[in-house]
C-alpha cells in the first residue's frame, strides 16, 4: 500500500536535487530548469497531502493548478530575461553576471 511518506520523501529528494543544480550550474538556462524542478517538488508534496489528508475537499490540487500557472509565467519571463542578458553580455555563464555584486 502506498504511503504518504513515500511521496514526501520523493518530493524532498527532488527538491534537494533542484537546489544543488540551482547553486552549482553555470548555464543560465540550466538554472531555470532547476527552478522548475523545485516547483515540481512542491507540487508533489501538495498533491500527496491533498490525496492522503484532505480527500473530501481536494484543495491541494487547486493549489497545484495555481502553482503550475505561476510556473508557466515565471518560465516565460525568466527566459526573456536570459535572452536579454545574452544579447547584452554575449554569454550565458552565471559567473559573468556580476554587475550587482559588491
Amino acid at each position: 500500500m502506498l504511503q504518504l511518506q513515500y511521496f514526501l520523501l520523493l518530493g524532498a529528494a527532488l527538491f534537494c536535487i533542484g537546489i544543488y543544480g540551482l547553486v552549482t550550474s553555470r548555464n543560465a538556462v540550466r538554472v531555470l530548469m532547476s527552478i522548475e524542478l523545485l516547483l515540481n517538488a512542491v507540487n508533489l508534496n501538495l498533491m500527496g497531502f491533498s490525496n492522503f489528508l484532505d480527500s473530501a475537499e481536494i484543495k491541494g490540487q487547486i493549489f497545484t493548478i495555481f502553482v503550475i500557472t505561476v510556473a508557466a509565467a515565471e518560465a516565460a519571463v525568466g527566459l526573456a530575461i536570459i535572452l536579454t542578458i545574452y544579447r547584452n553580455r554575449n554569454t550565458v555563464d552565471m559567473e559573468q553576471f556580476n554587475l550587482l555584486k559588491w
Binding site: V29, L32, E36, A76, L79, I82, Y86, T91, V92, D93
Partner: peptide, 13 residues
Amino acid sequence: LILFAIMLVNKQE
C-alpha cells in the same frame, strides 16, 4: 519554451 531558449542562446563556449 526551454528548448527554444537553448536554440536562441546556443553558443558553444
